[in-house]
């Protein structure tokens, strides 16, 4: 490649980055630009200040080693295993507390009906007690809403880790999308299992 062609390549890479046509600027793209600059210097300006060349080589090496360090942390495990497992557990908490709340309410309604038949002071006491039970049961609605927000935040984190994987190594968008879909499927299966387990606990 002539120095003119190399310069054109470098200009194209830089203008692509600046134009925003590349939606996610990852380590690969930055490394490409740095390497192109180093190649250009080696070819065209052999007498360039050594310290500048060393600096750029150091930068390329730093990007490369950071990429490896991040991938060594196995962020894919966090998004593939840990976060989905936490989401399923939180969903199970919502389901279980909902079932328990309904059982408590059913019992309170029966006590209330009993109160209608006894009359007098006892009836008043029963009304007060059942009202307190109904009030306390509203915790479940709040719990459900708050936990749903936490699950939503976890999914956001999952998506960010996927983006990080894309920027620092895993370049196959199709593979990542397929894995995300697979995770959703597994999550739904685990959720169904948790519901089935809950039903089994209630007996035949």
């Amino acid at each position: 490649m002539s120095s003119k062609e190399a310069q054109l390549d470098l200009d194209t890479e830089i203008s692509d980055l600046q134009s925003g046509e590349i939606q996610r600027v990852g380590a690969k793209e930055i490394l490409g630009v740095v390497n192109s600059i180093i190649e250009g210097m080696n070819r065209d300006i052999p007498s360039i200040d050594v310290s500048v060349r060393e600096y750029l080589e150091g930068l390329a090496s730093f990007i490369q080693s950071t990429k490896h360090e991040i991938l060594d942390l196995r962020p894919d495990e966090i998004s593939d295993e840990h976060l989905p497992a936490v989401s399923v557990e939180l969903d199970a908490i919502v389901d279980a507390t909902e079932q328990a709340t309904n059982s408590i309410m059913e019992a309170a309604e029966q006590i209330g009906e009993g109160g209608d038949t006894v009359g007098g002071e006892m009836a008043e006491k029963l009304v007060t007690a059942t009202t307190q039970i109904y009030e306390a049961c509203s915790f479940q609605d709040i719990t459900g809403q708050r936990i749903s927000k936490v699950v939503g935040a976890l999914r956001e984190i999952e998506a960010k880790i996927d983006d990080l994987l894309g920027a620092f190594g895993e370049t196959d968008d199709v593979a990542r999308a397929a894995r995300r879909k697979e995770r959703e499927k597994e999550r739904e299966e685990k959720r169904q299992d948790a519901v089935a387990d809950g039903e089994l606990l209630e007996g035949p």
Binding site: E98, T101, N102, M105, A108, E109, G112, V127, T130, T131, Y134, E135, C137, S138, Q140, D141, G144
Partner: peptide, 15 residues
């Protein structure tokens, strides 16, 4: 949209 909450409000209104 939450049936438990409907039940709670219905019961409180009944009281």
């Amino acid at each position: 949209d939450y049936k438990t909450m409907l039940r709670i409000i219905r019961n409180l209104l009944k009281q």
